[in-house]
């Protein structure tokens, strides 16, 4: 039960409370750039969620077995090459390069795959895929996963990594779709000339971020409620 609650907390935290876009400011470029129409925003959100899950799986595997301090595979290689057994192997210096490599390649692969086998899907959101390579949200999820694999008493499992990444992807989708809805309405308003375009979008995003601050504490409350329910 505790595992499920902790997964739930990670998920809610990434999706609402510490929303990737409105709290951590990752993925701002598409948030401002591709948020003029709701359908496009939704396509972008879906594409990000999809890629973030794949990238998280790959980077968790890579980090857990090779890149984290005292990772099994690299420790074995260290010994096989005759390194000093008293030293902990730590290859985390490679992680940034490895992540960006994994993200770029998996985006490329997913794009080719979808283009070949799901042309309809590719038409609706495949066009967003190349944009995602340089989307901070994906790398940010990988970095958060890495942070929780650096040692300490409880290392994250793959399920934690997936909860964070899918939660973050859904949070991104929620934020960008709300934003697109607001901006469709904004088109009809008489905005001061200097603020037209990104200026007013940022101000609106600020107000949206304030609204999302209202979710603070929701995770604790819901977790407590679940605990009381299951204990009774």
């Amino acid at each position: 039960m505790d595992t499920i609650i902790s997964l739930f907390l990670i998920f809610i935290g990434a999706a609402l409370i510490n929303n990737f876009v409105l709290h951590y400011f990752v993925g701002i470029c598409p948030f401002i750039g591709v948020s003029r129409r709701v359908d496009m925003a939704f396509g972008m959100g879906c594409a990000v969620t999809f890629v973030i899950a794949i990238a998280a799986t790959l980077s968790w595997t890579l980090t857990f077995y090779i890149l984290r301090p005292d990772a099994p595979l690299s420790a074995w290689l260290w010994k096989a090459l005759g390194g000093n057994p008293g030293i902990t192997v730590d290859l985390s210096i490679l992680s940034y390069i490895a992540y960006i490599f994994v993200i770029a390649s998996s985006v490329q692969f997913v794009e080719m795959y979808v283009k070949k086998f799901f042309p309809a899907l590719h038409r609706s959101f495949g066009i967003f895929l190349p944009l995602i390579t340089t989307n901070c949200a994906i790398l940010f999820a990988c970095l958060e996963i890495m942070k929780n694999l650096q040692g300490g008493d409880q290392l994250w499992g793959l399920h934690h990594a997936l909860a964070l990444s899918v939660g973050g992807g859904i949070g991104f989708t929620i934020a960008i779709v709300i934003m697109a809805g607001l901006r469709e309405e904004l088109e009809l308003c008489d905005v001061p000339k200097a603020l037209k375009g990104p200026g007013i979008a940022l101000l609106v995003a600020g107000i949206l971020a304030m609204a999302f601050m209202g979710f603070t504490g929701v995770d604790r409350g819901v977790a407590d409620a679940i605990r009381t329910l299951t204990h009774n």
Binding site: L202, L203, A205, G206, A209, M213
Partner: peptide, 11 residues
């Protein structure tokens, strides 16, 4: 706080 970042940059 985070919202302030958006508001300040917008202004």
């Amino acid at each position: 706080l985070p919202p302030g970042a958006f508001l300040t940059l917008g202004a």
